[in-house]
Design a binder for these strands. Structure first.
Lengths: 107, 107
DNA sequence: CAAGAAGTTCGAGATAGATCGAACAAGAGG
DNA sequence: CCTCTTGTTCGATCTATCTCGAACTTCTTG
């Protein structure tokens, strides 16, 4: 099979859900790493973000981001290409991504 | 007693905590009502926001907002004056409040 | 002072979330 | 075909969150 997963359409993106997805240090770290590098696969992203979490946990976090509409995930062989849905996010929650990514507040 | 509660200083405000505080429809509704009216007390805020929640639940949500550094709460007799810490929030998480309050994404 | 009004706190119940290891699926390479 | 690499899914566990009603604290007011 491996039909793509369900990712919300731009109109389906909901602010509380997005905020919930971002309200976790691990996911924030993943998102920032992703923003720096543009796009990446799960393993590289884990390393890049400096997280010490199991594969399954990272997979879980990436799923939360994906299902909130924050990221896009494409199949590339046995790997995945993850990227930020910048345009959709900007349309749904103007300014939010920038505020979160660019913030100097950490941890 | 009734010394004021502990509210985080501007420097203590953390992005994940703020995002967590905002990642709830009820708190988002309270915050929007608060933003419209400038400042208010708990009861009026409950009415204004159109929420159908018990006093204790609203008290809980306002506590989460307060402890995240999003709102300020002052004692006024037996009532409370709640307001948004706009400056501190803008300093700690630039653009975030505006992105969240001004968003056209609902529910 | 007695009543009432405004909130808080506590304890309980239910639901959601984070994390892991083990088992699984599927492409890539020899 | 066998094995390695990448991720996903499942089940379990632990912790946090939402919600309420009941009891309490403090002011305010008759």
């Amino acid at each position: 099979m491996h039909e793509e997963w369900h990712e919300p359409t731009r109109e389906e993106i909901s602010l509380p859900t997005v905020l919930g997805a971002l309200a976790d240090p691990a996911r924030l770290a993943l998102l920032r790493a992703l923003h720096e590098v543009g796009e990446s696969n799960c393993g590289a992203l884990t390393t890049l973000s400096g997280l010490d979490l199991s594969k399954s946990t990272v997979s879980h976090h990436l799923r939360v981001l994906r299902e909130a509409g924050v990221t896009r995930t494409e199949f590339v062989g046995t790997s995945r290409r993850v990227s930020i849905r910048q345009d959709d996010l900007e349309a749904a929650c103007p300014g939010l991504l920038h505020a979160v990514i660019g913030s100097h507040v950490h941890a």
